[in-house]
């Protein structure tokens, strides 16, 4: 490596655009692309909305001795599931597709810093998640007499539960995008475990109906804790009695969700592939 025949150094190199500016620019482009792709919009948004309307209509009753309606319970659960869908499912499938259709390879060949791509993905899933929450809340309030929290502390709880939950689920989504063998198989590979997780995490079926071993499995994942945190917001103190431990365990919620943010980040950094399997 001693014969250096080429002389180069660029003449006073002009400054490269900043990571933050490019991250925001990526977010704008990602969000625009998402909303233009009708299939993806319907796929991401409709699932929790349809389920909320369905379950809310079928189970119209009250939970014994609490004054809480079943549809209120579902609103809390489906907001959790909807946010996780906007992050985990949307990113997991979206990045698998990006890997296969050449987006990642093209971007890797430009001076765009790789972190800008992830900032763009995270911010676009934040936009989708916020919209999803607003729509689900509106349905809950208009159709099912859901009471919006009247205390600032409840809104605060909702904000940190959703922020931590979204961040963890998004990082998990980025990590899981490397699992499907192709973009075609991505929706199946990523949606299936997500649906299972919803069933065992108390979104549709109360924990009291689940066997211990399933509860143990779901307690490992973030969705259970997100839903638990959201129930504390929407069902209030009266609903705490319905929890397995008789309490919403907000401290534990914060701990587990934070652990998932850290773990998800580590998983992304160690497993993310910029190349498709066929690219070698």
């Amino acid at each position: 490596m001693t014969t250096q025949t080429t002389v180069t150094p660029p003449l006073a190199a002009p400054a490269l655009p900043s990571v933050l500016a490019l991250g925001l620019s990526r977010a704008a482009v990602e969000t625009r692309m998402f909303f233009r792709e009708k299939d993806a919009v319907i796929f991401t948004f409709s699932f929790p909305i349809i389920l909320l309307v369905l379950f809310g209509s079928i189970f119209a009753g009250e939970l014994e001795g609490t004054g809480i309606t079943v549809s209120q319970l579902y609103t809390a659960g489906l907001i959790g599931a909807g946010v996780m869908g906007a992050a985990f499912q949307h990113l997991g499938i979206g990045i698998s597709v990006d890997r296969e259709d050449g987006t990642l390879k093209r971007l890797a060949g430009t001076p765009m810093p790789r972190s800008a791509y992830f900032i763009g993905k995270l911010l676009s899933s934040l936009v989708v998640a916020v919209l999803e929450v607003v729509v689900l809340l509106a349905i809950g309030v208009l159709l099912y007499d859901l009471d919006l929290p009247d205390q600032a502390s409840s809104w605060l709880t909702m904000a940190w539960v959703l922020t931590l939950g979204l961040a963890g689920a998004a990082l998990l989504g980025i990590a899981v995008s490397s699992v499907p063998r192709s973009a075609k198989s991505a929706p199946a590979v990523i949606t299936m475990p997500f649906v299972v997780l919803q069933f065992i995490s108390g979104v549709f079926i109360p924990f009291t109906e689940l066997p211990d071993w399933l509860i143990n499995i779901s307690s490992f994942f973030p969705l259970k804790w997100m839903c638990q945190g959201l129930r504390s917001v929407f069902l209030g103190d009266a609903g705490a009695a319905l929890e397995l431990t008789g309490s919403y365990e907000l401290g534990k919620v914060a701990l587990v969700l934070t652990a998932w943010v850290v773990g998800g980040l580590v998983l992304c950094l160690t497993t993310f592939r910029w190349k498709g399997r066929r690219d070698g």
Partner: peptide, 12 residues
């Protein structure tokens, strides 16, 4: 760099 095949950014 102009790569061989790409189908990205279809909606822009």
């Amino acid at each position: 760099i102009v790569l061989q095949t790409a189908n990205d950014a279809a909606e822009l």
